[in-house]
Write a protein that binds this DNA or RNA. Structure first.
Lengths: 163, 163
DNA sequence: GGATATGCTTCAGAACATGAATGATACTGA
DNA sequence: TCAGTATCATTCATGTTCTGAAGCATATCC
């Protein structure tokens, strides 16, 4: 015998896509108040997690074109949230680093994100809420975009043991 | 003393956004093979769940401009996936309905989505995988976009602005 | 039956992202 | 040393996606 056929709306992929877009739709207006778009926030979060990074590394980690990194970084630099300095060891590279102001901004946006979390998960049981946070963390760790360390490693293919 | 401050990457909102975009990035190339974009699939899924709907209702349910519904529906109609008929009770409305071909297409795309699910969740424990599916379902139910029945209700509503 | 509102469509343009071309810098091998 | 080639950031032209205003057809309300 045959159970009911799998529904698209039950797939993790479709649900992540739909809920993710909705989450961003809710977050975006708040970010706008600080002069940021979601991608700017993604970049701040990335730089916060790695301390400093070249633009190409950022492009790969965020899965966007290098030319877009230029525009995003320009804007964050205008806001004073990051600084862009030539790498003395390779003067082609522009190293991006979070400023104190950038960290403040990131904290503010983090508060915004948690405020939306509260709304989004308002009707979930505490147990479900905990499961959600835990499993999304698992998923981000195992299936998320490659983190910067990996990208760096694959960048210096010749050397082998990097960092 | 003070615990470590909340990290943006730990918020449900940020993770849903990031993972959702990634899920869509993986799904999109497969949909392309059938001549669809993610939004087309969203529309098919919506129509499958409600049997039939006017374009304005679809626009509200998908949170997009009515003029975009026109373009999406045009394309799906060209593919033979939906039919667009004038509502005899209100000849301004164009009622959209899934065709058999549309249902086939939806099934094919559903298979694609589940294939991506398998990859995305490959490194999760079976328990985590189950939790993920369950909790995302909960979240979609309680925090998802307003379902069509609600929209219809608020449309019928003589006076009030609900929300 | 005239005024007003609603639904769909068209159209112009805003917003966002990409890829190719360019200039600066680094690396390679003879 | 230095010519040739590769890499990084930037600019620019373009493509795609989406929106909002205008217009027409139809419905609703005095």
């Amino acid at each position: 015998m045959k159970g009911s056929p799998p529904r698209l709306a039950d797939s993790v992929t479709f649900r992540l896509g739909a809920l993710g877009l909705q989450a961003l739709d809710r977050l975006a207006p708040r970010l706008e108040l600080h002069g940021l778009k979601p991608k700017h926030l993604g970049m701040l979060a990335l730089l916060d997690s790695v301390d400093a990074s070249s633009q190409l590394e950022v492009a790969r980690a965020m899965n966007i074109a290098p030319s877009l990194v230029v525009a995003l970084a320009d804007h964050l630099e205008d806001l004073g949230a990051i600084q862009r300095v030539k790498d003395p060891e390779d003067r082609r590279r522009h190293v991006l680093r979070l400023t104190d102001r950038g960290r403040d901004l990131l904290q503010t946006c983090t508060d915004d994100a948690y405020a939306i979390d509260a709304h989004l998960t308002a009707e979930l049981s505490p147990a479900d809420r905990a499961d959600l946070a835990r499993v999304l963390g698992e998923l981000a760790r195992t299936a998320g975009l490659p983190a910067l360390p990996q990208l760096r490693a694959s960048a210096d293919d010749t050397g082998g043991h990097a960092s």
